[in-house]
């Protein structure tokens, strides 16, 4: 019975992740429209986009190899696997010990590796450009994200997501400068990792500035749908990862249905607020020149490092 409940929770969470991710992306888009004085297409628009793409036929370039066709599945698959280890609705995930926070970041890195390869597969200039830029941004983000993780794991005495979340949720509410710094760094890193303004602009195909869009320019039909969906899940997961590390209060500790329902409810609220914060940042900033990104990501690294330093100096 116990095992069955655990499996049920695990499946429930996977479904929540897969199903809610487009809604979250839609919510962010809606907020963005409001802040910019436009009418929005509604929270459901990403679902309609995905559904439309699934119906369409796939058109592939002549010289595309198996990597091009395999990548969408990998992007989606890795996102779903990560979705089953991050504590989102419950802290009783039996799969969670199979990947700690470093592994989670590395699984995302694997997906990115294949995405960059897929970008280079067709042999157009845009694909290569996107791949090169994506890997450049990634290589500068990685140290920052690691330092942020380092701070959190120092404070939680573990790299396991469950233990970090439990340690923070059960501890008293204290003002810890190190966690605040790490949190700021994490927000900056999330912006860079999920390709939002000022690092990348997900809503344009402007040749000279695009990064992520340049890599997936040749995709169509269900492949594109999987990549888009995977990207939404990834965005969703980065935000929930942040919530699990920095604001874990309210995630269900027990197995009973009432707790899990509250936990889902609280998570929706937290996600709504997190989306608003991200939109405010995005609207307030302009897209940066590519080589100014070193400063943006340098700031993220600085924040994360200050987090580690503050942990030792001030706590």
């Amino acid at each position: 019975m116990k095992a069955l409940t655990l499996i049920f929770i695990e499946i429930l969470q996977a479904i929540v992740v897969i199903a809610l991710a487009p809604a979250f992306a839609g919510w962010v888009d809606v907020l963005k429209c409001w802040t910019q004085g436009r009418t929005s297409a509604g929270v459901m628009q990403p679902y309609r986009n995905i559904a439309k793409l699934f119906v369409k036929d796939v058109v592939i370039a002549d010289n595309a190899s198996w990597i091009f066709r395999f990548t969408p599945y990998l992007v989606f698959g890795s996102a779903v696997v990560v979705g089953s280890v991050v504590p989102i609705i419950s802290m009783n995930l039996f799969l969670a010990p199979s990947a700690d926070i470093i592994v989670v970041i590395a699984i995302f890195a694997t997906a990115r590796f294949f995405m960059a390869l897929a970008g280079m597969d067709i042999g157009t200039a845009f694909g290569g450009m996107g791949a090169s830029r994506e890997m450049m941004v990634a290589s500068l983000t990685e140290p920052a994200i690691l330092m942020a993780i380092f701070t959190v794991s120092l404070a939680g005495r573990s790299t396991s997501l469950l233990h970090i979340a439990r340690a923070f949720a059960s501890g008293a509410l204290v003002l810890r400068p190190s966690i605040v710094f790490a949190g700021i760094a994490f927000v900056l890193v999330v912006i860079a990792e999920t390709g939002r303004i000022p690092v990348d602009n997900p809503s344009t195909h402007l040749e000279l500035t695009m990064i992520h869009e340049a890599m997936i320019l040749e995709y169509s039909g269900r492949h594109l749908a999987l990549i888009e969906w995977g990207a939404m899940i990834r965005f969703f997961l980065f935000v929930t990862l942040g919530i699990a590390c920095f604001l874990p209060w309210g995630i269900a500790v027990t197995d009973n249905a009432g707790d899990i329902a509250t936990s889902v409810f609280l998570m929706v609220i937290k996600l709504g607020i997190a989306g608003a914060v991200l939109v405010l940042i995005e609207t307030g900033l302009a897209k940066m020149r590519l080589f100014r990104l070193t400063e943006f990501l340098g700031a993220a690294f600085l924040m994360a490092t200050l987090g580690v330093i503050a942990f030792f100096i001030l706590e």
Partner: peptide, 20 residues
């Protein structure tokens, strides 16, 4: 004491912000 160390962190943060 926590407030104090937090403000110290903020002072350091503004110092770095000025640097950048």
């Amino acid at each position: 004491a926590q407030v104090n160390s937090f403000l110290a962190a903020l002072v350091l943060l503004t110092a770095f912000a000025m640097l950048s």
